[in-house]
């Protein structure tokens, strides 16, 4: 899923400075699962913003709403009755796709992103998430013992580890496992170290971001109105 985290309150306060009515919109997709922008996080942030205003006797209303998803137009449509001057700030608590979809559908609204969209990852334990994929568009993890060197090596080495790998940790931080250490260990356990002599991939980055913004069209699904 997409892993995100909330921006510092200070930055969010900056968005609504001089605003009187804000609508904070969560998303029940990825950001609910990673505890960044679901019903609960919407409640907490809205409450904090109201408290902040109230303690200083500032006139601010923060209303709350959580949509099924913010990356599908049909759910964004639900906002139609709430737009058109009802709020002077719309705060989207989805990944950055949410505020983009809202801003596109309702061009007259002031839309702000409340989350920082961080990476594609999974939960290592409750409250801990780690990056596992870089969406390079051409998956090759089967060549590396089921581990992704592109997303999980700081240098995206396809023939690692580099000289900075020590004690199973990355040179960038001892909080990061050296994925190449894991790849090598997995091959050693399987008695297949020689296999690593072969892997000599030249990555074609066109399927990644380097090919420009990507788009997928599935003709059989597209409705022709």
């Amino acid at each position: 899923m997409i892993i995100a985290e909330r921006k510092p309150v200070e930055e969010i306060k900056g968005f609504i400075r001089d605003k009187k009515r804000a609508l904070l919109i969560g998303c029940r997709g990825c950001v609910t699962v990673c505890n960044a922008g679901g019903v609960k996080e919407v409640e907490i942030l809205a409450s904090l913003l109201r408290l902040d205003a109230k303690k200083d006797d500032v006139d601010l209303t923060v209303d709350e709403l959580t949509l099924e998803r913010q990356c599908d137009p049909e759910y964004i449509e639900e906002l139609a009755s709430l737009t058109g001057g009802k709020y002077d700030a719309i705060l989207s608590m989805a990944c950055s796709i949410g505020p983009q979809f809202i801003a596109r559908r309702y061009p007259g609204e002031q839309v702000y992103p409340v989350l920082n969209t961080c990476f594609l990852g999974g939960a290592m334990a409750h409250g801990i998430w780690a990056e596992h994929c870089q969406a390079c568009g051409n998956c090759v993890i089967h060549l590396f013992g089921g581990l992704c060197p592109i997303a999980r090596c700081a240098k995206s080495l396809l023939n690692g580890p580099c000289g900075g790998s020590a004690g199973g940790k990355c040179e960038v931080s001892d909080q990061i496992d050296c994925v190449w250490h894991l790849i090598v260990a997995k091959h050693m356990e399987a008695g297949a170290l020689d296999r690593l002599l072969e892997v000599d991939l030249l990555k074609d980055w066109r399927t990644s971001r380097d090919g420009g913004p990507r788009k997928i069209t599935r003709e059989e699904l597209v409705k022709n109105d």
Binding site: N159, G163, G168, H181, D194
Partner: peptide, 14 residues
């Protein structure tokens, strides 16, 4: 001298 020792010569070979 880096870890894992058994792999170092393989990486050089590569």
């Amino acid at each position: 001298f880096a870890d894992p020792e058994d792999y170092r010569v393989i990486r050089a070979a590569k």
